[in-house]
Amino acid sequence: MTNTPQVLGPRALNRATLSRQLLLDRAPMRAGDALTHLVGLQAQNVKPPYYALAARLADFDPAELSDELESRRAVRTVTLRSTLHLHTAADARALRDFTRPAIDGELRHFRSGLAGVDLDRLTALSREFVAKEPRTPKDFREELARSWPQADPQALGVAARCLLPLVQVTPRGLWRRSGRVALVELDQWLAESSGAGGDATAAAPLRAEDVIPRYLAAFGPASVKDMQAWARLTRLRPAFERLAPRLRTFHDENGTVLHDLPDAPRPDPDTPAPPRFLPEFDNLLLSHADRTRVVPAAYKGRSWKGNQSFSVFLLDGFLAGVWQLTQDKDTAVLTIEPFGTPNRAQRADLTAEAAALLEGPLHTDSIWSGYDIRFGTVVDT
Rank of each mutant, 00 (worst) to 15 (best):
M1Q: 13
T2E: 15
T2C: 14
L8D: 00
G9S: 06
R11Y: 00
A12N: 01
N14E: 10
R15H: 07
Q21N: 15
D25M: 10
A31E: 07
L35C: 07
L35W: 10
H37E: 06
V39D: 00
L41Q: 02
N45R: 10
V46E: 04
A52C: 06
A52D: 04
A55K: 04
F60T: 12
F60C: 15
F60N: 14
D61C: 14
E64M: 12
E64S: 13
S66K: 01
S71I: 10
R72G: 09
R73K: 14
R76A: 04
T77K: 02
L80T: 06
L86R: 06
T88F: 06
T88K: 03
R93Q: 05
F98Y: 13
F98N: 13
T99A: 15
P101M: 10
G105N: 07
L107A: 15
R111G: 15
G113K: 15
A115K: 14
G116D: 10
V117R: 04
L119H: 09
R121L: 11
E133G: 14
T136R: 12
K138W: 13
D139L: 11
F140W: 11
E142V: 15
L144V: 06
L144Y: 03
A145W: 04
R146H: 11
Q150M: 03
Q150G: 06
Q154V: 11
A155G: 03
R161G: 13
L163T: 05
L164R: 07
P165D: 06
P171D: 13
W175R: 11
W175H: 06
W175Y: 13
R176G: 10
S178T: 15
A182Y: 09
V184E: 15
E185Y: 14
W189N: 12
A191I: 10
E192L: 13
G195P: 11
G195T: 10
T201I: 12
A204F: 12
P205G: 10
A208H: 03
E209M: 00
A218W: 05
S223L: 00
Q228K: 00
W230T: 01
L236I: 02
L236N: 02
P238Q: 03
P238V: 01
L243G: 00
P245V: 00
R246G: 03
L247Y: 02
T249V: 02
N254L: 01
V257P: 00
V257W: 01
P262C: 02
D263P: 05
P267C: 06
P269E: 01
D270Q: 11
P272H: 12
P274Y: 12
D282E: 09
H288D: 01
T292R: 03
R293L: 01
V294P: 01
V294S: 02
P296T: 06
A298I: 11
F310T: 04
S311D: 10
L314T: 04
F318E: 05
F318V: 04
W323T: 04
Q327A: 06
D330N: 07
L334H: 03
L334C: 09
T335F: 05
E337N: 11
P338T: 08
P338Y: 09
F339P: 06
T341K: 07
N343F: 09
R344I: 11
A348R: 15
A348W: 12
L350G: 07
T351M: 08
A352V: 10
L357S: 00
L358M: 07
P361L: 11
H363P: 05
S366V: 07
I367Y: 08
D372W: 08
D372V: 08
R374W: 05
G376S: 09
G376D: 12
